[in-house]
Write a protein that binds this DNA or RNA. Structure first.
Lengths: 212, 212
DNA sequence: GAGTGTGAAAACATTCACAGCT
DNA sequence: AGCTGTGAATGTTTTCACACTC
């Protein structure tokens, strides 16, 4: 929180959190070596990364799993129960809406929006799909932090602008399009086919160097 | 193809391809500066990255868009029309099955599989959902290169093993679980909630350093 | 003995800045 | 004049290796 954590490390923190969640339920402590093995990184890397969060381990012993989890969650800002909305309730949007992993990690999906009137009022979980015109209300009511774009690429840009207009500062974009830079706004794009393309590059090659 | 391209560059190649696809349809050439602007990277970076693919640009002029696309596709191995299958036809699996971006980028989804008998024969596009027992047949018939895992996390590991057993060498994993290392197998994991977590870290902070 | 935390070294990646081509 | 390709400089990340603690 206080100090600057290198971007490469920030990228790995959620990974470590995932690792901690899948270790044997009755282990109370864990070594950097063990984390490294699960996360498939070097153990010195794990120690260096975790050292940015403070002095969390005990020499000769290792890390206390619960303490470490708490600290990772704190550092990532997961403790505040951030609210998010999803725009574009097609297949992908629906999948995201029902995806349990968000809730588990402390995110709350508080709105689903689509411009297609056929989808209006479609119920997913305890939420009904609403028209885009209601985005602003929801953002104000729930103090929405993150907008998740799952629309077709043609409208992604205008949706992004709309979200920003509603005061949203962080966008997770699943539309396969490069959004324009918006000053002061954090945008992360996940392009599913780009992931396949990277895999494709490493196909049939000697894995001298393993895909990141 | 011939020479070793740095991993950081490989990661960006699909991005450049995406950029080329969204420039004005009647432009025939493009400068590194323009690509850099769309991809939000430094222009020297673009030139350096592209220089790994050979001498593709013309000094004083820029890059020919068509040539560059062809070369990127060649380098990424997208020209062979790689076949992929999807295992786990829940919301996410269905979304992936209908996702147009794969086809567009030269991937062919040739099989959908689920262990839930209620889903069997469910039709998505021109494919019907099949039981896991038919994976092997499909792999042999279509020479499947990539397996996409969209199952619940509990079974992801065993599905991965099954895929490897069927001769698959590359796996794209959407289950929120760290798969064990399998020698000689390329695994990429996309964890949707990890993406949100990274965004969360950068929330409300001064964007001195922008999230990668 | 086991395992962290961290200087120092090595490896890797990005950016500058400019010669060279069109 | 405009833009690439690339040495050289700079910045970042990873890894080694070991002093230190339990």
């Amino acid at each position: 929180m206080k100090n600057n954590i290198p971007p490469a490390t920030v990228q790995r923190l959620p990974l470590y959190l995932q690792c901690l969640e899948q270790v044997d339920i009755n282990s109370v402590g864990i070594s950097s070596k063990k984390i490294a093995e699960i996360a498939k990184v070097n153990d010195a890397q794990v120690r260096r990364d975790l050292s940015y969060l403070g002095t969390l381990g005990t020499r000769g012993v290792g890390y206390d799993i619960l303490t470490l989890r708490k600290q990772l969650e704190l550092e990532l800002g997961l403790v505040d129960g951030l609210s998010a909305i999803i725009i574009g309730i097609g297949n992908l949007g629906s999948a995201l809406a029902e995806y349990g992993g968000f809730k588990e990690k402390g995110f709350k999906i508080v709105g689903l929006f689509d411009s297609d009137s056929n989808k209006l009022n479609k119920q997913i979980g305890n939420l009904a799909v609403k028209p885009l015109s209601e985005i602003k209300d929801t953002c104000e009511k729930y103090n929405v932090a993150i907008g998740i774009i799952a629309t077709p690429e043609k409208v992604a840009e205008e949706i992004a602008d709309k979200l920003i207009d509603c005061g949203i500062k962080s966008i997770l974009n699943f539309a396969p399009v490069m959004l324009k830079n918006k000053p002061g706004i954090q945008i992360r794009s996940v392009d599913l086919s780009q992931e396949l393309q990277i895999l494709s590059y490493y196909l049939d090659r000697q894995p001298l160097k393993v895909a990141k």
